[in-house]
Design a protein around this nucleic acid. Structure first.
Lengths: 334, 334
DNA sequence: CTGAAAGCGCTAACAC
DNA sequence: GTGTTAGCGCTTTCAG
């Protein structure tokens, strides 16, 4: 059996209270017995059980992260950032891929509650406010990484999608492009709509009239982007640039361009969104609007931890700025 | 406060023992009280605390997964596969990215032990057998996803690297290639060496003499692959095909080829290893040796769960076969 | 069929 | 400084 605090106490010839005190550094104990107890703990390879201490009211030092799919590079990078920041605070991370399936999400929420996690970070998308509301009522600290403005008062970190779209549009405009196509991800999502709105705003400001026909809807796969972009590029009076709402779609667009015999960026400029590892892998390297993934992870954990420690009365939303990262997929319009 | 079993018992006017029984489906209770208790539980939104039940000797239904880096697509896909299979058994997953840092790994191991996980899956690489041995002595169920044959008796699932290298080499040979270069990942790793050995065996079988000068060492980044491949391609008497020991390196090789004005697969064939999402994203899509990621996750979890349930006395190693996935990056030698 | 009671390993008053 | 003791929320005999 694993050694318990009793075993340590017995071997060290002290009471369990004393052992507990040296473990937690609470109370007052002589340096002598402290060292002695420490020594015995080591000899016995004793590791205090966090499940027992959690039961006595202390926290579990565990947080849950729900996201659509860990195998998606964007979310994997988010998860890594959350893991690292959590680790700094001594928290372990439960990973919960929901596949945007509400049932799976609910099941995970329920499990996380039963395991008494100290808090939950929600980066999954299907969040029907309803369930989240339920969690909040159960007093569990929550923070969200959002693409939509939730209708709930929850600590949230989000990226300014409108600005991102604006930056993308402006960059293309500055390069002289006028016929700018947009590859949308999911028109039902606020973030997609905001990015598009931002891009169009930039066009409007530059006196260029957005063309409805230049919007195509892709999805989350390279192929969907390739196909959608293909339609755009085969049309007469084709665009000279395309703004893809995520890097995956941008890669699809790049493939479509190549299939059409168009060279990037000579014949077609492509700009993406997210700045995942995929952007560096594309050929040519993808110019894209970067989401500050590290910072998102950092801030969302900070918000949650403050919430957990009860250091914060008010909820807040942090709006992070996206940033243009120039690589080689955009060039002047010819 | 969260409702406890006492609250439920009180509201249902039964004893906590009865409530416990209906929760676990143990003992014998009349259908009538069972339904009643269930109803009360629902009304109170009561969720049994797994930390309390874990303390009474039941398991935590939690497993830990240590890996080098969650942001690496290969490991993210592994993690997802492990998560899914674990989920089927009712297990939650703690993610532990070690960055191949022994200190970080040890710290994570220690935390996992304190949290009383039911088992640990080790996919990280720095495993000095020493620490793993320590874990084994502490009776914790362990399963490994290995690239090397560990010197310990541990349940392990591994992929036949030699065969994979052989398949890659054979494929290239069948296409008529004779000057085949190899982009290695890390010569210190057995897996890299085995893949290379496999490839050379194929060459030997085909009566072609491997050329030492045609081996270059890259690493884990696209750029390192690009650079290493660049050296190979710029040499006179350049290779007509390259076998990259992982998909990332293959992408680097592809970029190098393009920079040298070589068209893939017309002027140069490239074959990778892993079959991560990157393979589909490359342009042209990468022909590669697939690691059966889903199957790896499935089997390693199955081994661990059997171990946890004590259904298995003997340790075992499962050797999975890699598989050639043909896409468009390889063509006949001209 | 149901309940009383003894732990599980640890923390936190409160004594001494 | 150190020890005693009463829980934390749940499971599990063992009576009734």
């Amino acid at each position: 059996m694993k050694p318990t605090i009793y075993d340590v106490a017995e071997a060290a010839e002290v009471s369990i209270a004393t052992v507990s005190k040296v473990i937690n550094g609470t109370g007052r104990i002589s340096e002598k017995t402290r060292k002695h107890v420490l020594q015995v703990m080591e000899d016995l390879k004793y590791k205090p059980s966090m499940v027992a201490s959690a039961l006595t009211g202390k926290s579990t030092y565990t947080i849950g992260l729900t996201l659509p799919d860990l195998a998606n590079p964007f979310f994997a990078e988010i998860a890594r950032a959350v893991e690292d920041r959590g680790h700094e605070y001594g928290f372990n991370l439960f990973i919960c891929s929901t596949d945007n399936d509400p049932e799976r999400e609910i099941k995970y929420f329920s499990l996380l509650m039963q395991k008494r996690v100290d808090g939950i970070i929600i980066a999954s998308r299907t969040q029907k406010d309803q369930y989240v509301k339920g969690l909040i009522q159960q007093q569990i600290p929550i923070a969200m990484i959002a693409r939509e403005m939730p209708t709930l008062a929850v600590d949230t970190v989000m990226v300014d999608d409108f600005l991102g779209g604006y930056q993308a549009g402006s960059h293309l405009l500055e390069l002289g492009h006028r016929r700018i196509a947009i590859l949308a991800e999911d028109m039902n999502e606020m973030s997609t709509r905001e990015r598009i709105r931002g891009c169009r705003q930039a066009m409007l400001n530059a006196q260029v009239e957005p063309d409805e026909a230049l919007i195509a809807v892709g999805g989350f796969t390279v192929d969907s982007g390739k196909e959608a972009a293909g339609r755009l590029l085969e049309a007469e009076d084709r665009p000279t640039a395309v703004f893809a709402c995520n890097d995956v779609l941008a890669i699809g667009a790049n493939q479509a361009a190549r299939r059409c015999g168009l060279r990037v960026p000579r014949d077609l400029s492509i700009i993406g969104f997210d700045n995942t590892v995929l952007a560096t892998i594309m050929d040519p390297p993808l110019t894209t609007i970067a989401q500050p993934i590290q910072e998102i992870g950092r801030q969302v954990v900070d918000l949650l931890v403050q919430e957990i420690k009860g250091e914060k009365a008010l909820k807040q939303r942090v709006l992070l700025m996206p940033q243009l990262v120039e690589r080689s997929s955009c060039g002047p319009c010819r």
